[in-house]
Nucleic acid binder design. Structure first.
Length: 558
RNA sequence: GUGCCCGUGGCUUAAUUGGAUAAAGCGACGGCCUCCGGAGCCGUAGAUUGGAGGUUCAAAUCCUCUCGGGCACACCA
């Protein structure tokens, strides 16, 4: 069987259009990009294209006429195409031979969880950087959303044939880290009974005291009364290690693992900064004004130029980010995707401008902006302030609703729309809760397969099964849905939208639940039962592998 | 004030990136268990896609204006 059938049909269409060009009917230079879609309406066939409508203007011919010319030159013998029809105002609709569906099932049986893998990326290297919170406190729920999106997106890209690296950027230097160190140090002194004023803009959370306690547990009063350089460095690095360890643990428990933890500090080790400054000067994008060095980001559409090196000689955060992205480029990625919270969106222009100033293509960097999360409990918004003991951390959320639910809820809507996270729905084990709905479908299938085995019907991957017996409307609909997986992954990978998979899962589960209530898998007719077992097993495989991409478990019973 | 994101049934969101009759869930109302897991299934009601123009064979989607909501506008990170 062929690679991908939509590819096959696109090739046929291209050939036909090229023939029309060659024979002078279409005044075009080359065949255009053709898109196939799966029509919503069954009466529009299995696949459909609007190509005639799209080129009608260019070839100055009526769309219907164009469609006719294309169809007349289409070589459909010995292909998967059963019937072609032209519809107003110029769509070309394809009906496929029924056995393409069964071939699809065979493919799923053969490939198992690898079904749906694509070669879209052709091995290109993509880096996805996400979360990257300042290590000055625990992760909150918003970071959880970023983590879920970044992690699933990475999995999707992998499945689509890209080489993906997940990275976390650690801001391990600068004022915030100084403050963190001071905060812990002050708490340490206070806990040991010394009177110390807490830094006015220090970190006031309870976790700071916990860290101070850790210090006491490990080093007792070793640093008591001291405020020298060495002890300050100690508190800084101790606090950093401790918080970072917490962040790693939270992410791990959320099912997210990074390939690289990249230190901001390391950017400054070999004086890369002055190299970068020199380069930008040479390229004419860096100038001095009022004692500071400014990058001409306005050249690339930013509202104002930005300071890179302050008057006092200290590089800004922006300087680090330029260095960091330069480093990314030098590591040879074909593309890097940064996932940022909504509060950073104003930063995109200057970052892209900086990359262009360095001479990199503007689309080397893609920034996805994730909108905020609002927690709802008993119909009311949960305050995100640290006061009042209401939970705000990712850890609390995982403990309250579970990892599967949390991830699903973050991924069921487009990341660029606000998430209203209803805790009561998230905890309910009913049809209100889409996670269980999908997982339940999986568990049901497992149960059927088990039951079948007990009845002596076991599934052997290699065994020939007469799939032609699958002829019910619900069965054909299910097989079609299964075959859509590739399209969904392709689209999700090209548009960076993980929620497409969530929607797909829900739809597949829904079709299965309907099928389940109307037809029995295990019947007196053994041949039929075997065919149906293959079908439900394929559904199980697709449910399970898609859930895996989203980082959600596929329980066999629940 | 300037820039970015978002306005879709009562509520929360989809819509194959410009396609054919705007699709689901919740909530409301009415049905379905002698049978593989009822955490399920079926049906009914509910929409001028915030509003006004425009672009074209075709607009929820693109452009302009306008009204609401969020976020950002530092020699902070």
């Amino acid at each position: 069987m062929k690679i991908d059938l939509s590819e096959q049909i696109i090739e046929l269409l291209s050939a036909s259009i090229e023939k029309n060009i060659k024979e002078g009917r279409f005044p075009l230079k080359e065949a255009p990009q053709i898109n196939l879609q799966v029509p919503k309406n069954k009466s529009h066939g299995d696949l459909s294209t609007n190509i005639a409508l799209q080129i009608a203007r260019e070839v100055s011919t009526k769309p219907l006429e164009v469609a006719n010319l294309i169809v007349n030159n289409l070589e459909t013998q010995n292909t998967i195409i059963d019937k072609v029809q032209i519809a107003e105002p110029g769509f070309i609709n394809f009906w496929l031979k029924e056995n393409w569906l069964f071939q699809n099932l065979e493919e799923i049986r053969e490939k198992g969880e690898d079904y749906g893998e694509l070669n879209l990326g052709k091995g290109k290297r993509i880096q996805v950087e996400f979360v990257s919170v300042n290590p000055t406190g625990p992760l909150h729920v918003g970071h959880g959303k970023c983590a879920a999106v970044g992690d699933s997106l990475s999995n999707i890209l992998k499945k689509a044939g890209y080489k993906v690296e997940k990275e976390y950027y650690i801001n391990d230097q600068g004022r915030q880290i100084d403050l963190l160190g001071q905060s812990v140090q002050t708490r340490y002194h206070q806990l040991l009974g010394e009177k110390r004023e807490f830094p006015s803009d220090g970190y006031k959370g309870e976790y700071i005291k916990d860290i101070a306690q850790e210090v006491i547990a490990k080093f007792q009063d070793k640093y008591k009364g001291r405020d020298d350089q060495e002890s300050r460095e100690f508190f800084k690095s101790f606090a950093l290690q401790s918080i970072l360890a917490g962040i790693k643990k939270d992410l791990n428990d959320f099912g997210v693992e990074f390939d690289v933890w990249f230190s901001e500090k390391s950017l400054y080790e070999e004086d890369k900064l002055s190299e970068m400054v020199e380069l930008l000067k040479q390229r004419g994008f860096l100038y001095e004004k009022e004692g500071a060095f400014w990058l001409k980001t306005t050249t690339f559409g930013d509202e104002k130029d930005r300071v890179v090196i302050r008057e006092n000689g200290v590089p800004t955060y922006f300087a680090s980010d330029i260095l960091y992205h330069q480093n990314k480029y030098q590591r040879g990625f074909d593309k890097v995707i940064d996932i940022w919270g909504a509060d950073h969106h104003g930063y995109i222009k200057r970052m892209k401008a900086a990359l262009q100033a360095l001479g990199y293509p503007p689309d080397f960097l893609e920034v996805l902006i994730v909108q905020f999360v609002t927690l709802i409990r008993e119909g009311k918004e949960v305050g995100m302030s640290t006061r009042g003991g209401e939970f705000v951390t990712l850890r609390d959320l995982i403990e309250e609703v579970g990892r599967d639910v949390a991830r699903y809820f973050f991924l069921m809507k487009s990341y660029d729309s606000h998430t209203d996270f209803d805790l009561d729905v998230a905890k309910s084990q009913s049809m209100e809760n889409p996670v269980y709905y999908v997982q339940y479908a999986h568990a049901r299938i497992c149960s059927i397969i088990k039951k079948a085995k007990e009845a002596g019907l076991s599934l052997d991957r290699k065994e020939k099964v007469n799939l032609q017996r699958l002829s019910e409307e619900e069965e054909l609909a299910l097989i079609k849905e299964l075959s859509l997986l590739k399209e969904v992954i392709k689209k999700a990978a090209l548009t960076w939208r993980p929620h497409l998979l969530t929607n797909y899962l829900y739809e597949l589960a829904s079709l299965f639940h309907r099928y389940y209530t109307v037809h029995r898998v295990i019947t007196d007719d053994e041949e039929l039962s075997r065919a149906r077992l293959v079908l439900v097993d394929c559904i199980r495989i697709v449910l399970s592998s898609t859930l895996k991409i989203l980082g959600i478990s596929a329980p066999e019973s629940m």
